[in-house]
């Protein structure tokens, strides 16, 4: 099991399969609004729905949070977002949709996490951690 410590930005507990994107994501353009499918070169073309989604942060259009809002209205949002740095757009997306949001300190460990394994994210006001069952 890999355990990552971090800072909870949006509190809660979430379970799901991992999806690791060791890069920044532009919500507008790289996640399909109607299906939640990630379309980003070099990464698996799969839905973010219900995932523990690891990515470095957001980039690109400030319209991004609208896309995440749309996904959560359709039940297609990730169940947790684990980032290196929570920028404005990621924070807005997380709070709007109650998606557990955690900043992790040691991003290098994230690079070792495989896709499609079970994970659990927990964030409170005091602490936050992500457990990956490998």
């Amino acid at each position: 099991m890999i355990v990552l410590k971090g800072r909870g930005v949006v509190e809660g507990r979430a379970f799901g399969k991992t999806l690791v994107v060791d890069d920044y994501i532009s919500f507008l353009g790289e996640i399909e609004r109607s299906s939640g499918v990630l379309r980003k070169k070099g990464f698996p073309e799969t839905s973010v729905a219900g995932r523990i989604l690891f990515f470095k942060g957001s980039k690109g259009s400030t319209v991004g949070p609208y896309v995440i809002y749309d996904l959560c209205k359709r039940g297609l949002a990730p169940s947790a977002m684990i980032v290196e740095k929570a920028d404005q757009l990621v924070i807005i997306s997380g709070v709007l949709c109650n998606i557990v949001l955690i900043e992790v300190r040691e991003w290098d460990l994230v690079k070792k996490i495989p896709n499609d394994v079970d994970a659990e994210a927990y964030a409170s006001e005091r602490d936050a951690e992500v457990k990956i069952y490998v």
């Binding site: 609004r33 259009s61 400030t62 319209v63 609208y66 896309v67 809002y69 749309d70 209205k73 709007l96």
Partner: peptide
């Protein structure tokens, strides 16, 4: 506020 053009915020923006 910015994000008013339909071309810009699209259906997702309209919905929010």
């Amino acid at each position: 506020i910015s994000g008013v053009g339909y071309n810009n915020i699209g259906e997702a923006g309209l919905s929010l």
